[in-house]
């Protein structure tokens, strides 16, 4: 699997497995702390069509307002996802998201939500703010800019070959759980602890 076009259907997403590398092309939306809380407070009809069958990106970008009034992303790496753990599964299932992009992985509640509603967790490379900003070809529109400010607003963006790794799939697989388990085992060995 190389390129994944957005919007995407459930069958394609269910075909993805933990450990796959994919590049996303198409329309997605950004959203982090304030956005997730807001999306759950009530159903936001104006935003819903921009979330259906696409992915939400946990990102607080540096954005430039160009002279012609358009916007462009200057630096746009992922932020830590686990803060959205209380909301994420509900946001996925309510709005029909097919995925989440972030870093550091998420917990059990989200993993269950991915399985239930047919979505994946996609890990972008933390700190790779330039590579990722360059994959953002166009800023289509923005929601809640005035209320939330630049980093927390919901930016609708067009991306081209945006590189991500599937670290949590829709079949209960989580690379984060696997790696943590293995490294804890190795630690016990190195410290001569455990059985």
């Amino acid at each position: 699997m190389a390129e994944l076009k957005l919007p995407v259907d459930e069958a394609t997403i269910r075909g993805l497995k933990m450990g796959d590398y994919v590049e996303l092309t198409g329309r997605m939306i950004t959203g982090r702390d304030a956005a997730h809380k807001w999306l759950i407070e009530s159903f936001r009809e104006e935003v819903a069509p921009f979330m259906k069958d696409t992915v939400i990106y946990h990102c607080g970008p540096v954005v430039r307002h160009d002279d012609d009034g358009s916007w462009s992303f200057v630096a746009a790496g992922p932020t830590t996802s686990i803060r959205e753990e209380p909301y994420q599964a509900d946001v996925i299932c309510t709005y029909g998201l097919r995925g989440v992009i972030g870093k550091g992985g998420m917990g059990r509640k989200t993993l269950d939500g991915l399985a239930r509603c047919g979505a994946v967790y996609l890990h972008a490379v933390g700190g790779a703010a330039q590579v990722l900003a360059r994959s953002v070809k166009r800023v289509e529109r923005v929601f809640m800019l005035e209320e939330f400010g630049v980093p927390e607003a919901l930016w609708v963006i067009d991306v081209e070959r945006f590189p991500v790794m599937v670290t949590m799939d829709s079949h209960g697989g989580s690379l984060h759980e696997t790696v943590e388990q293995q490294s804890r085992q190795k630690l016990e060995e190195l410290l001569g602890l455990g059985a």
């Binding site: 590398y21 607080g60 970008p61 540096v62 200057v74 630096a75 746009a76 790496g77 490379v125 933390g126 700190g127 790779a128 703010a129 330039q130 590579v131 360059r134 590189p163 790794m165």
Partner: peptide
């Protein structure tokens, strides 16, 4: 792949004089 992306990012940031990480 992660390391390749990181190294690519480091080059881009240096060339454009933009922050390596946001």
């Amino acid at each position: 792949r992660a390391l390749a992306t990181i190294l690519n990012n480091v080059d881009l940031a240096r060339e454009a004089s933009l922050p390596i990480c946001q």
